[in-house]
């Protein structure tokens, strides 16, 4: 079985995020890292391929400036190859534009299953993967917390607001995974060295046969009108516990008539 995993390369979450003052997009200069949320998809893909006994995991990423540093770990833990779509016309793409690019790349790859994160850590629109499914006319199951495959049928536990649903779904399909669906493995030194020689195919919008007006700022058809600091909540009283801080909490709750 062949699995394609969508991995988003994002600015390091340890750095304070910033918006470009001109076009209000997230600043994505410099080195990007793989979104931690997508590490679960990579691991899930590897485990499903291993259980199936054949096939491979391919990575799929759309990122600026031919960025691949966020692909390295995923290649090191076992992904066989990657498709990287990078093109200046993609700047400013929204979720729908991104989905059109990913769907075109998936058509080229022809996998049995596509895995993605439920939402990214930088944009968290959470719509991209299901838009991909609709573009491909495939079924999708979002918020998977457990996945099995038997006789070519997916069995997914789908998280809901109140519990979970068991969903059965034929392939090909798109599944989005929550954190905790599986525990990602760490790359070894050998794996990291091997990752350097794994193929990364870099494609442009033209290579994918897409109309440039469908993607980037042109395709997004939305604009930021203003960005301002919100009225911040202020810090209140701080007490350092010397064995009696609970008494202060009690008084606070009394004032609010909770006690």
């Amino acid at each position: 079985m062949n699995v394609a995993v969508c991995v988003k390369q994002i600015p390091d979450t340890a750095d304070p995020p910033a918006l470009d003052p001109q076009d209000h997009t997230l600043v994505r200069e410099g080195k990007l890292i793989m979104d931690e949320s997508d590490g679960y998809g990579v691991e899930m893909g590897l485990q499903l391929v291993e259980a199936d006994g054949g096939g491979e995991v391919s990575l799929l990423s759309m990122a600026p400036n031919g960025e691949r540093s966020g692909l390295r770990n995923a290649l090191a833990v076992g992904a066989a190859k990657a498709i990287l779509v990078s093109d200046p016309v993609l700047a400013g793409s929204d979720a729908l534009g991104t989905a059109k690019v990913l769907a075109a790349a998936i058509r080229r790859l022809g996998p049995d299953l596509v895995l993605a994160g439920t939402e990214s850590s930088d944009g968290y629109t959470g719509t991209t993967p299901v838009q991909v499914a609709e573009l491909l006319d495939w079924p999708s199951v979002s918020f998977a917390k457990h996945i099995e495959i038997s006789d070519g049928l997916l069995r997914v536990q789908r998280q809901t607001e109140a519990g979970y649903e068991e969903v059965s779904c034929p392939l090909p399909a798109v599944v989005t995974v929550t954190a905790g669906v599986v525990e990602p493995r760490y790359p070894s030194f050998k794996g990291l060295a091997a990752a350097k020689s794994k193929p990364v195919e870099e494609l442009t919008v033209a290579d994918l046969g897409l109309d440039p007006s469908q993607v980037g700022f042109a395709g997004a058809r939305q604009q930021v009108i203003s960005v301002e600091a919100s009225e911040a909540r202020k810090a209140g009283e701080i007490v350092v516990d010397a064995g009696d801080a609970h008494e202060r909490v009690i008084r606070f709750l009394e004032q609010l008539k909770i006690l």
């Binding site: 495939w138 079924p139 199951v141 109140a162 519990g163 979970y164 649903e165 068991e166 969903v167 779904c169």
Partner: peptide, 15 residues
């Protein structure tokens, strides 16, 4: 809805 509607809920669990 065709193939896009092929998934089926086989059980529901409430915590």
């Amino acid at each position: 809805t065709g193939a896009s509607d092929a998934a089926r809920i086989v059980a529901r669990h409430e915590e």
